[in-house]
Amino acid sequence: MAAKQKQLLLILAREFISNLSTSALIADADGNLVFYNEAAEAVVGRRFAEAGEMPLEQWLDAFEPRGSDSAPLPAERRPTRIAFVERRAAHEVYLVTSADGVEREVEVSAFPLFAHAEEFVGVVAIFWRR
């Protein structure tokens, strides 16, 4: 059998965001964070090579996302989760605490990727430090 490999769209997405100066991440169809770019490393406070792949929710929880009132951001308001679960684009502003301990306000846009009309292959999220 052919060895498991990433879907072509994810390979292309990785190459695309690798060349972006805007922070971005990609997750696969199983809900695993599979890559974030160098620009995101500055926001996250940790290199992807150190972090490696992990479930998207686990990754998000690590940053303690909070709303403007400092209350924990409910999962159903997290753009990457909405893009993954509901398969639609989403946008949100919230606070995170990066791996380096710094609190940052970030603005996140996430959208699902479909290779064919019904083939969901993952999520791309772009985020800006405000």
């Binding site: 052919a2 060895a3 498991k4 490999q5 990433k6 072509l8 390979i11 990785r14």
Partner: peptide, 13 residues
């Protein structure tokens, strides 16, 4: 790694 190369799974080994 081969899983991140186009067709890496098809041609691996």
């Amino acid at each position: 790694t081969p899983d991140w190369i186009s067709a890496g799974g098809l041609a691996r080994d």
